[in-house]
Design a protein around this nucleic acid. Structure first.
Lengths: 113, 113
DNA sequence: CTGTATCCCCGAGGATACTG
DNA sequence: CAGTATCCTCGGGGATACAG
């Protein structure tokens, strides 16, 4: 089993990666379908989005529900363990907003939440 | 200027990287010298530690103070903007602790804070 | 709509040795 | 003590095409 020297090290190992925190922070706003996530994250390739979702699922942070129907319909949501990340995600988000304000950075549409 | 679609994206761009959150979370516990950081993070190479410290400094999250004396003495501490990350770092740390407990992961000495 | 399957590149990160 | 300097590997991540 992998061992760490610090809890933050462990956290980074699980939610590190360019897009994982972004995915999680979207999911913390509610259930999302695959296509919704794609639209909210124009910068990520399909490959990476899928791959990160799979890893988050494997790590128990995200649940994937495939609903039966005429047309493919998949929903992603946070698991309980994922929900526990909410404070961290929110804090990260808040810091990003402050930082953006302080440096004159603006966000492109689509406005997020 | 670089543009983002989400504040979390911005945050990750600044504090992303395998060791940056770990460095910051150590510094949030107080001023550290270079060697102290190294000892607290046995997993990181000197190159990466220095490089990440330089980037954090350039991004205004960390201040570096080189004290004059018989022997080299350098101190690192959080800037005001770095301090604002405290809630995020703490939340990340707390989550890591919970996660470790839930999965039976333990941390190697040196015990961290 | 929700993904796979490939191919490929670049740079983050590591190992090691050396220095003022 | 507090770093540089080099060299090198590896896989994260991107682009594109295709599929059920």
């Amino acid at each position: 089993m992998k061992r760490y020297h610090c809890a933050v090290e462990l956290a980074v190992d699980v939610i590190g990666g360019k897009w994982k925190p972004v995915i999680l922070s979207h999911l913390k706003e509610g259930v999302h379908r695959y296509g919704e996530l794609r639209r909210r994250m124009p910068g990520v390739s399909e490959k990476m989005l899928t791959q990160h979702l799979r890893e988050l699922e494997a790590d128990g942070l995200v649940r994937r529900d495939s609903l039966q129907g005429r047309v493919p319909h998949v929903e992603y949501r946070l698991t309980e363990d994922g929900e526990r990340l909410r404070p961290a995600l929110q804090a990260l988000y808040d810091w990003g907003v402050q930082r953006a304000a302080g440096t004159g950075i603006t966000f492109e549409p689509s406005p997020i939440h």
